[in-house]
């Protein structure tokens, strides 16, 4: 019954599907925001110094594995912890209770936790950009041909991030550590999200 289709991802217009729309139309509506968002991640990656000198296979492999982690950082602010709301791409805001009553659960709660911890670090735009680059190159390495070059790129980005973070908050040594601890959080989120994706098929 189409009325019961739950669209948990806030890149949909609304969490409940329009009952008059076919699954294909629902998917096309979603891809109107999903596809540009993925393209944006690719454009972002092209601007990471050193990323374009990786092999094409390794660029694609990193992007496939890391796109959702980057999007979770990029859209973390849609999950408003103070208000306990999620803003969908239409601009409409839904309370945590309402979304839970629709059937959303652990992934939603984990995303809220992540959003809360990330915003607590009060990153500047520059810090957030460099952190996002670290997220992408720190993603799962399955299928990577030249692990050494990816590790070298990761190393240089982490060094740059440490320099930037310590410059803006010299006294707060723990800030950089807390930031790096977001990486395993993102991996957990990504694994939970992947589980949901497995149950989703587009034909």
């Amino acid at each position: 019954n189409r009325k019961d289709i739950l669209l948990a991802c806030p890149m949909n217009m609304h969490p409940q599907a329009d009952p008059n729309k076919t699954p294909q139309e629902i998917w096309e509506d979603f891809s109107l925001s999903f596809t540009p968002a993925v393209r944006e991640v690719v454009e972002f990656a092209k601007h990471i110094p050193g990323f374009s000198s990786l092999s094409q296979n390794d660029q694609i492999t990193l992007l496939k594995a890391g796109t959702f982690e980057v999007l979770m950082v990029r859209f973390a602010s849609l999950f408003n912890v103070k208000e306990k709301t999620v803003t969908f791409i239409s601009g409409t805001t839904y309370s945590l209770e309402a979304l839970k009553s629709m059937g959303m659960g652990t992934l939603l709660g984990t995303m809220f936790d992540f959003s809360e911890k990330l915003s607590a670090l009060e990153l500047s735009a520059e810090e957030l950009g460099l952190f996002t680059a670290v997220v992408l190159v720190s993603t799962d390495r399955s299928g990577i041909e030249n692990v050494k070059s990816v590790e070298m790129l990761q190393d240089s980005l982490i060094k740059a991030l440490r320099t930037l973070v310590s410059k803006s908050a010299p006294g707060d040594v723990s800030r950089f550590t807390k930031l790096l601890l977001k990486l395993p959080d993102l991996r957990t989120l990504n694994n939970m999200h992947s589980e949901k994706l497995l149950s989703f098929r587009i034909d």
Binding site: I60, K64, E195, L198
Partner: peptide
């Protein structure tokens, strides 16, 4: 997870964006 992202055609979008061959679809 074998390749959950393939359910969304992620690799295709990435390849096209990387190669710069963006379909001219009305945004």
């Amino acid at each position: 997870f074998s390749d959950p992202a393939s359910n969304l055609g992620l690799e295709d979008i990435i390849r096209k964006a990387l190669m710069g061959t963006v379909e001219e679809r009305p945004e």
